[in-house]
């Protein structure tokens, strides 16, 4: 009887200790990955940079040099910019030029620095019902898909890829609002989910090359259209405005931005390869990017 009571007390004490441990963990100064006292910044970025494994490659290099841990939240570009706007991140690292410019113009952060580009590829089933395989003209390919009403999966999540896709439809002279039918399927999810869905429905889908190359569940999907200039996808990086959000870690965040666009950071990006292929092409020095 007594021992049973003691056991229960001990159990309860353990649970409370566990809760205390988490409370301890959650203080900004401590992480599960690093000892207490670690400096860290939070970066809101896109699924393409995270899912492709780029950050896993470059962040340890940055941390080794500066001791600053970078915590990355992967979201669609629109959502990542919102996260910055709310002040829930120190740095935004995304790919949708128009939205980025608006973010800066509205005073939410900046200045925007060009970092790198990758390219989009049009993925589709090997059976290719729209007959576009091998084309280098993305606009013509989209027209063919629309004409044949071949299934097409859209991210539909305001991400950079989604916005690029919408721009391409406009370039093709197709008014989606007027012509879309059941062939056009918006899923409102990330790149990986869109690829999984396209695989399941034998549909076409626009993807960034990085995510595609690291994607394991390809099934019957393949690259059908690539190499069109209009498929280039520029990434930019911005400091969230410390004027708007006093808690932004300006010095450490700026250090990360400076490193990413420095020759050393640019080389780290260029060095990242999947299956022997380079995914991201640094172009911080390209004044027009």
């Amino acid at each position: 009887m007594l021992t049973k009571r003691h056991l229960m007390t001990a159990g309860a004490a353990l649970l409370v200790l566990g809760a205390a441990a988490v409370a301890q963990d959650s203080r900004p100064s401590a992480t599960t990955a690093a000892p207490a006292g670690t400096r860290f910044i939070t970066v809101a970025s896109t699924t393409s940079t995270v899912d492709s494994g780029l950050f896993n490659h470059i962040l340890p290099l940055f941390k080794a040099k500066t001791g600053i841990e970078v915590r990355v939240i992967s979201q669609g570009t629109g959502q990542a910019l919102d996260t910055g706007r709310r002040g829930d991140a120190d740095v935004v690292f995304v790919h949708a030029r128009a939205a980025e410019d608006k973010f800066v113009a509205d005073g939410h952060g900046g200045p925007r620095r060009a970092v790198m580009y990758n390219d989009f590829v049009l993925i589709g089933p090997k059976s290719d019902p729209a007959g576009i395989k091998g084309s280098r003209d993305i606009v013509a390919a989209l027209r063919a898909i629309q004409t044949k009403a071949a299934p097409f999966v859209s991210r539909g999540d305001r991400s950079g890829t989604h916005q690029a896709e919408l721009t391409l439809w406009r370039d093709a002279g197709i008014d989606l609002a007027a012509t879309r039918g059941s062939w056009y399927r918006e899923i409102g999810q990330g790149m990986g989910a869109a690829l999984n869905t396209a695989g399941g429905m034998n549909a076409y889908v626009l993807a960034d090359r990085g995510t595609w190359l690291s994607f394991r569940n390809r099934g019957d999907l393949d690259i059908l259209v690539e190499g069109d200039k209009r498929l280039f996808n520029q990434y930019g990086i911005m400091l969230v405005s410390p004027q708007r959000h006093a808690h932004v870690k300006q010095a450490d965040a700026q250090a990360f931005i400076d490193w990413v666009v420095s020759p050393e950071g640019q080389k780290a990006i260029a060095d990242y390869k999947v299956g022997g292929q380079q995914l991201f092409f640094p172009n911080a020095t390209d004044s027009g990017a």
Binding site: T31, T32, T42, D51, G192, A193, L195, N196, F215, R216
Partner: peptide, 21 residues
Amino acid sequence: GNIAGYTRTMTTAIALETSKG
């Protein structure tokens, strides 16, 4: 936020690996 090494749990890791195919 599913931050690697900090807020990644079993379920968010499952969601991530699923999205990576």
